[in-house]
Design a protein around this nucleic acid. Structure first.
Lengths: 126, 126
DNA sequence: TTGCAATTGCAACATAGTTGCATTAATTTT
DNA sequence: AAAATTAATGCAACTATGTTGCAATTGCAA
């Protein structure tokens, strides 16, 4: 169904994604807005925004759900194909615009991929 | 520290992995042995087996933790580098022995990868 | 077989995420 | 501009996954 009404809560969540082009875990998001809304609301807003293709989700290295807004996102073309990078030191997650070539696998039909690269980010690399 | 004693519980868990070369989610494993041992024990045995390199773990598409035993596993060479394939229809997970080439990323140091391919397996492909 | 440390069971806890339902607030209708 | 409609929210209770402390048990070495 997606977003129908632009409420204060929706605006608040969207602002967080617009401020910085960085992925956020749901847990972190809930913490960020805990004075302004209920955690249930956060979960529901994220669902709706994802259905509308405004943001996309993926799993972090800890198994937690992360969300990010990025260029590739739109209602039709859910950009669930690009890889993500999570820093093992500062935990920051970035969307990568690189293409990773997946060889075809015998008798299998690959429909989507979930690729998380881990290591040291620009800041922690030093 | 790893496995020191070969208890009944350890044997039971190992048998499950030896029977069939297939990955299992922790939830499924707990269900399989729920008459024989406590869930805490299952978690602890899996931890120890992983530390010994007898099995390895990774995240499934649902964010759940999965474990598998496979050729590449050993105490030193924790084969956390190979990709996995999860069927979107029957949920079965397989270890893939293919190599996926990761291009180098500017100012980042990639240390490990977590690659899950999703689609239809051999059986569900028809 | 005895003793000790590893292992297990259990209960209680922690955290992520979901559900039902009454209330509130955007948006549409009049 | 007020009323009506219904999406969105808050709250409490719940489910599921996973962890911890501690007492009881068991594997193994001496």
């Amino acid at each position: 169904m997606g977003i129908i009404r632009k409420t204060k809560a929706v605006t608040t969540v969207l602002q967080i994604f617009e401020e910085k082009n960085e992925a956020k875990s749901v847990v972190h998001l809930i913490e960020l807005v805990k004075d302004k809304m209920n955690k249930t609301t956060v979960y529901r807003i994220l669902d709706r925004l994802e259905q509308d293709g405004v943001i996309h989700s993926f799993n972090g290295k800890d198994g937690l759900k992360w969300y990010a807004k990025c260029e590739g996102c739109s209602a039709n073309h859910h950009s669930d194909k690009h890889p993500h990078f999570q820093c093992t030191e500062c935990d920051k997650v970035e969307c990568l615009s690189i293409e990773i070539n997946i060889p075809s696998i015998k008798n299998h039909k690959v429909e989507s991929t979930d690729i998380l690269l881990m290591g040291q980010c620009e800041v922690c690399c030093v």
